[in-house]
Nucleic acid binder design. Structure first.
Lengths: 331, 331
DNA sequence: ATGAAAGCGCTAACAG
DNA sequence: CTGTTAGCGCTTTCAT
């Protein structure tokens, strides 16, 4: 920067003014400075700027994994919004590892980022406790378990979402249903499902709840096979997220049953891939992109105003997307 | 930091020594310092450290998108390796937008990150030209078009990979085949396919090449429908990546044809989701995770040694994963 | 509109 | 093993 200044015959300060554009500079001076910058190939050192301004123009995002359509959509959307506002994204994945989550949290909050967005509570329930600085801007997104009421959150009512799925199946006359549910993560989706049935004095016993060993289509496939073996006369299967639902669909078809003729299948999330299965999957749609946008904007707004994000719980609406994988119960 | 020092009765420097652990400190002094740190809740300012050391412990990764299984696997793997080495990841997506790519490149190379990894050349062919500083560590990964020979790259021989697919189909006796190919991105995969057929004096004319309007299953679905309409007697369809292949599979089945009885389908990439289609998809496997690992390690090694990454082109091997979607040509 | 001085919070290099 | 002195590259006052 000093080199640029001497070449242009000004001081560092004037160079700074030209670069940042925060202070008016006489046009001809500015031109001279710009020429010097081009000639020397000068690029401002962002780290030094950060130290001086106390702001990094960077937001951290912590997700359980990025290799699932649900979270990759969130990552993509967050990055989009950040980019629009000139912010960079530091991404941390926790990979079902509490220690790793803790490290990520600690690292990022050490002023490496200006704010932190945490999507999905899978591995963070505890680490969140050790929030270092209460003045550090944090927002939660897609939070499913107990929401710490000290932090702003943008999420949905997961229990209600499960309820929607249950009402739909009930309305179609299903009585013998199995649930393929990732536990304890998707506890609430299950209890929503159950309460929809409970309204009609129907129970979904624990023996009809199957937890997959992994959160993949293969996991859903195996769990669905177990469900069909446990009750060959069941007429519907609820899957607690899309990836599982894909596997469930395959397992049902492989067993020689038709969907939805013999067995209805309902999914959860409604990410892009599921629209193209055969039959197309009925699912409770979670507005993941909207959640990501809202949460990111929440943080960005706080940063712009130099305040903490408003501490509120914002619940987005879910809706049922009825496609072809659910139909009336067979008798 | 000064507060910690006075509370512990030492200087800032000693606090620094305790925190970084780079210099030996007498145990009792260290204990006193640690107590002071705990009492004051001190956390080192990473930005200040970066300015002083000239290193940010951060690596940038630029990808076209993260909402595709291929790239999300790469992101995940890169983050994994970085985390193991105590590095953070700054993620930039270009989203088929050359300007955005240019901005990302410029932003990240301004010393915000210590090194840069660029995966996929979709939107970067040109922007790469304006690499500011030749001494900035950069590596390329999964690079498909002309490789700039000034930069190290870890990729595969995409033409050979296409060739493998072609040989497989040829070996099964297929003669009338269509190709659903994202162009110009996957040009080489197509030309590999063609040269495998050319060896047997067979041509795949341009009229049998179908470019999907979008890189999704839906895009593949439409393109495959067009292909089947153009030549109802075709016996095989090549899809230039998995997402397209999923759509192709559905289109073929929907047309009333069986896979692979009537039409064989072969994919490309072999990402996780495709193992569970029905029938399971035969595909040319691209070792995306290995590429990501190698490229990341390349950069990390260079950073550790304070040198530039060795400028070489490392080609990983591809292999054909034969599953159930390909079979002998029908006559 | 531009210049001069001070300092962001930390680590490097050396001295003791 | 600990203290002292500089300085990383930039932005912020405040003068001029």
């Amino acid at each position: 920067m000093q080199d640029v200044a001497t070449l242009a015959g000004v001081t560092k300060q004037t160079v700074s003014n030209v670069v940042t554009g925060r202070v008016a500079v006489r046009p001809d001076t500015a031109t001279r400075v710009r020429a010097a910058i081009a000639e020397l190939g000068y690029k401002p050192n962002l780290v030094a700027r950060s130290l001086a301004t106390g702001t990094t123009m960077t937001v951290g995002l912590i997700v359980p994994t990025v290799a699932s359509p649900f979270y990759s959509e969130i990552v993509e959307e967050v990055e989009n919004v950040l980019d629009e506002h000139g912010y960079h994204l530091v991404l941390g994945t926790t990979r079902a590892d509490g220690d790793r989550a803790k490290r990520q949290l600690a690292g990022l909050s050490s002023r490496l980022v200006d704010a932190l967005l945490i999507a999905g509570d899978r591995d963070l329930a505890d680490p969140l406790a050790l929030l270092p600085d209460p003045r550090f801007p944090i927002a939660l997104c897609a939070w499913e378990t107990q929401i710490p009421d000290s932090l702003p959150v943008v999420t949905i009512d997961y229990e209600h979402a499960g309820f929607l799925a249950g009402e739909h199946l009930r309305g179609l006359g299903h009585q013998r249903v199995a649930a393929v549910v990732e536990l304890p993560t998707h506890e609430r989706r299950l209890s929503g499902l159950r309460s929809a049935f409970a309204r009609h004095r129907l129970r979904i016993g624990d023996d009809m709840v199957f937890a997959p060993t992994e959160a993949t289509p293969a996991g859903g496939f195996a769990a669905a096979q177990a469900a069909l073996a446990a009750d060959p006369s069941l007429t519907a299967i609820f899957a607690s997220h899309d990836l599982l639902a894909l596997g469930v669909l395959e397992a049902v078809k492989e067993s020689g049953r038709s969907v939805p003729g013999d067995v209805s299948v309902i999914g959860f999330d409604d990410t892009a891939p599921v629209g193209l299965t055969h039959p197309a999957l009925t699912a409770v749609a979670i507005p993941s992109r909207e959640m990501a946008q809202q949460a990111t904007n929440l943080l960005l707004r706080a940063l712009a105003e130099g305040t903490l994000p408003v501490n509120s719980a914002q619940l987005l609406r879910t809706s049922l997307v009825i496609r072809d994988s659910t139909g009336p119960a067979r008798h």
